[in-house]
Design a binder for these strands. Sequence first.
DNA 1: TCAATATTCAACCAGATGGTTGACGTTTCA
DNA 2: TGAAACGTCAACCATCTGGTTGAATATTGA
Lengths: 108, 108
Amino acid sequence: MTHKLDLAFSALADPTRRAILAMLLEDDMAVTDVADPFEMSLAAISKHLGVLTTAGLISQEKRGRVKWCKLEPDALREASVWMQAFGQMGALDLDDFEAFLAAQLPDS
Amino acid sequence: MTHKLDLAFSALADPTRRAILAMLLEDDMAVTDVADPFEMSLAAISKHLGVLTTAGLISQEKRGRVKWCKLEPDALREASVWMQAFGQMGALDLDDFEAFLAAQLPDS
DNA sequence: TCAATATTCAACCAGATGGTTGACGTTTCA
DNA sequence: TGAAACGTCAACCATCTGGTTGAATATTGA
């Protein structure tokens, strides 16, 4: 029952996860390589990647023994548009707006 | 030590708080009036307003026995800029977006 | 002055979150 | 064949979150 925006925003609320997204902006990466710069266990990073995947912000694909992580811009776009609307508009029916987004954006 | 973005995104992650922000888009409101449409206690709403205030998304000013809540769009801007850095707004169909706005916004 | 109104505080609770460690299943390749 | 690399799982822990209720505080107005 939790809204897509709930998942996207709560995934974005963690600095480790934002850093991971920034890394993936450059290129797709394996889980081990994502974990490398962080001072925490591989298992912890694996969990963060799970959160990002559930939120739809990234996707993961296993090839051989390596699992590749890839940025998925759609979920970010929806959250971004929501905020843009907030910053720039006055009175707006956000329920209609979210319905508009649901119809507009691919995936779901 | 928590980053401003952590506070902003985690505040936005809750649907009740997003709904409150949407209400405050229309007009400043007293705490009791903010709480009215929600099926939860006044104390719970008071806590949500505290979270939004800590995140800088709203401000509260007490006049007499009434505490007025006011949207503070600036905090949203920083989060918005972070998302802009991902540069994916272009993938949205802007024509459809503007058509949506034209239908939504009052007498323009 | 006294009751009603507006809001917060404090204590409590269940469940989520973010981290750890160690064991485990796969896949590679020497 | 078997060790090493890749990644997840399970259990555990401390802390945070979002809600409750009841009492407390401050202000208003009759």
